[in-house]
Structures are given as structure tokens and as C-alpha cells.
């Protein structure tokens, strides 16, 4: 564990909490993509199946359980409790176009052709593009509430911090995982345009509005 990884995990946790609290407090999930939330639930489920056969540390186990619970909790709030506020007409990204290629790629490019390993690889590939329905929703409506922007910023920071973690681990531990690194870089790049808008607009107190 190094500082970059810890900060990355905390950003990730904060993003998830921001989203849950926002939906709960406003009693609304307007502006949030349920498709992205479904993809994240698929990501955590396929990656954290190792909860049953691998123990790393109490920290690791607790975080995995929290991510899984928060993810399914968000889906419950969006698709059950506050379903009436869900922006279904704008949330039209076809997630099968992300799931199918991630699955095929995981079968071809992996560390070992074993069920849990392929599921882990699939989760890494799918996570790298799981935010696309959310970014698509923001681009369709042309704006995002500032709290949604904070959520996206924390979620993007998490993977960016993980890149620093991987650089650190490469030099300090001689550890690296090319699958995670390449997918993590793709994931971070997808946020770059958003980071720019966040820094130039949201941090100056303006609403995140896309140019017409």
C-alpha cells in the first residue's frame, strides 16, 4: 500500500458515497446514467468473486464489500425507489456494445485461461469504458449538476491516482500488470475532456455546460 493507491481508493469511495448521498438527499437520480451504474455493478461482481477464495487483508475485503453493497444500493435507488426520477429517455447508450467486446477481449488477452482470471480481466476491460453511458448522458442533456460533476471528478481521479500507484510499484516493488495499466490509462484518458471542463468551469462556481 502506498499513498497513491490509498488516495485512489479513497477517491473511489468518496465518489460512490457522493452519488448515494446525492440521490438520497434530493430524492432524485436525474442526470445519472443507470446504464453506467449497471456496468459498475457487473465490474465489481466479476472482479470481487475472489472474495470467496483469496484473502488479501481486512482493508481489501471490507472495501470490496462496501463497493459491491454501494453499487447494488445505487441500482436499487435508481431502478426501484426513485425510478420515477430516472432520466430514461436520455440514458440510451447500448451497453451490450461495451460488454460484448470486453468479454471477447478478456477471452483473448489475459494472464491465464482460468474462469476467475478471465472474469477479473473482463472486469478490468469493462471498467475502463463503464463511464461512457454517463458521459453520453451528460453530452446529450448538455449539462451536469455540480454534485454530478464532483462525482465524476472523484471517479476519474481514482484511476489517475492508480496510474501513479503503478509507476511507484514498478520502481519500488518491480511489480507491474500490463492489462491493468493499459486499461487504466484508457479509462483515465476518457475523463480528460471532463477534467478540463471541471477545472475551468465547476471549480469557478459555474455549472458544467457543454458548448452548444
Amino acid at each position: 500500500m502506498n499513498i497513491f493507491r490509498l488516495l485512489g481508493d479513497l477517491s473511489h469511495l468518496l465518489a460512490i458515497i457522493i452519488l448515494l448521498v446525492k440521490i438520497w438527499k434530493t430524492r432524485s437520480c436525474a442526470g445519472i446514467s443507470g446504464k453506467s451504474q449497471i456496468l459498475f455493478a457487473v465490474v465489481y461482481t466479476s472482479r470481487y468473486l475472489d472474495l470467496i477464495n483469496a484473502f488479501i487483508s481486512p482493508y481489501n475485503t471490507i472495501m470490496k464489500i462496501v463497493f459491491l453493497a454501494a453499487s447494488y444500493g445505487t441500482i436499487y435507488l435508481m431502478y426501484m425507489k426513485f425510478k420515477a426520477t430516472y432520466d430514461v429517455n436520455h440514458d440510451t447508450f447500448r451497453i451490450e456494445f461495451l460488454i460484448a467486446p470486453a468479454a471477447v477481449l478478456a477471452l483473448i488477452v489475459n494472464h491465464a485461461f482460468e474462469p476467475l482470471e478471465i472474469l477479473w480481466t473482463f472486469s478490468i476491460y469493462l471498467e475502463s469504458v463503464a463511464i461512457l453511458p454517463q458521459l453520453f448522458l451528460v453530452s446529450k442533456t448538455g449539462e451536469a449538476e455540480s454534485i454530478t460533476s464532483h462525482y465524476l471528478f472523484m471517479l476519474g481521479s481514482y484511476r489517475a491516482l492508480y496510474i501513479f500507484n503503478w509507476i511507484y510499484r514498478y520502481y519500488a516493488e518491480n511489480h507491474y500488470d500490463l492489462i491493468a495499466i493499459v486499461a487504466g490509462i484508457v479509462q483515465t484518458v476518457l475523463y480528460c475532456d471532463f477534467f478540463y471542463l471541471y477545472i475551468t468551469k465547476v471549480l469557478k462556481g459555474k455549472k458544467l455546460q457543454l458548448p452548444a
Binding site: N60, H175, Y176
Partner: peptide
């Protein structure tokens, strides 16, 4: 990187 070591990250 070995095949198993990535399981220590989240």
C-alpha cells in the same frame, strides 16, 4: 508482474 499479484488491488 505475476498473474496472481493483481488481486491485491481493488
Amino acid at each position: 508482474g505475476s498473474a496472481k499479484s493483481h488481486h491485491d488491488e481493488l
